[in-house]
């Protein structure tokens, strides 16, 4: 871990401004992924801005009946929130499927969205990785890729986004609120927050340098039966091979987002029209352009079967 200076931010705008105007600065909140990466010098900030004191840790009702979740709300608190448990069960379920009790107590809402891939080649600084070292190549292609993405991949990167929470938020059509270095606030639909790798996998989100996530808002509840099904080898404390976030309405319509299959939570709205026809039809659309490797081709039938199970259960 390289030496860094450390300050505690006083306000979101000041934090954003400081981040933009300090060389190689990063925000730190829960720290559960950032410090992991700093120890390996995959992340090498020269300055850390501790945003934990920013009072962004509240969950409030919005005027339209939705929820506004402060960026610093811990995963445990978000999962345990009564409104979330009642009206956004898919989110509660996704959070509880992730990490461990200890990590959920520290990890924040914004930090969870911004966590980085667990691709083992990204984590080993001796090996090529375009995400870690642009232009060095992708060692996962042609390497051990059982965990990797099957859709939305590029020649440069086949990493997945590891979050469970983000998959549920994608299904819920969440919106990310930010403050920019100039102090201006903006909102970003979660669909537009994460990028596909393309030829610049090192750029993972549409946030600008210094831009700070302040909250995530959920629209008013959409009802339906909500489920998050995470499939993994180990029964707990493991990243998803495939996960399915689903909201199924009594009339058979609904929403589906997948985790563990792409560089971002994978949702194709057009595929949801196929829901009444069943999982096979939906996944056929979701994976229309899939490019699995030999190691991870199983994710295609696995996702289909997992979705089928979720739909069967949702429909009773």
């Amino acid at each position: 871990m390289r030496a860094f200076s450390y300050t505690r931010a006083q306000s979101p705008a000041e934090a954003a401004s400081a981040a933009a105007h300090t060389d190689n600065a990063k925000f730190i909140a829960g720290g559960t992924n950032l410090l992991d990466l700093m120890k390996l010098e995959i992340e090498t900030p020269a300055h850390l801005i501790d945003v934990n004191g920013l009072a962004l840790d509240r969950i409030e009702e919005t005027p339209d009946g939705g929820l506004r979740i402060g960026a610093l709300v811990r995963n445990t608190d978000l999962a345990a929130n009564e409104r979330v448990r009642r009206d956004y069960a898919v989110l509660s379920r996704a959070l509880l499927a992730g990490a461990s009790g200890q990590l959920r107590n520290k990890a924040t809402t914004a930090g969870n969205l911004l966590q980085r891939t667990r691709c083992p080649y990204f984590y080993d600084t001796n090996l090529p990785c375009n995400k870690r070292k642009p232009g060095s190549g992708c060692a996962a292609i042609g390497g051990a890729s059982r965990q990797h993405a099957v859709v939305g991949v590029s020649e440069a990167c086949i990493a997945t986004h590891p979050s469970d929470m983000a998959v549920a938020m994608r299904a819920l059509d969440a919106t990310v609120e930010t403050v920019r270095p100039d102090g201006a606030a903006r909102t970003i639909p979660i669909a537009e927050l994460h990028r596909l790798p393309g030829d610049s996998p090192e750029i993972e989100t549409t946030l600008q340098p210094g831009e700070l996530i302040t909250a995530v808002t959920l629209p008013k509840p959409v009802g339906g039966t909500q489920a998050y099904r995470k499939v993994r080898d180990r029964a707990s404390y493991a990243f998803a091979l495939v996960s399915v976030a689903a909201i199924v309405q009594p009339d058979g319509t609904g929403r589906v987002a997948l985790g563990g299959v792409a560089h971002k939570p994978w949702r194709v709205e057009a595929a949801e029209a196929e829901l009444p026809r069943g999982a096979k039809a939906v996944t056929a659309r979701l994976f229309a352009d899939a490019k699995p490797t030999q190691d991870n081709a199983f994710k295609l039938p696995l996702a289909e079967r997992t979705l089928a199970a979720v739909l069967r259960e949702a429909r009773g």
Partner: peptide, 8 residues
């Protein structure tokens, strides 16, 4: 409870 290794 937290992991004390992942916090400064």
């Amino acid at each position: 409870r937290i992991n004390s290794c992942l916090t400064l």
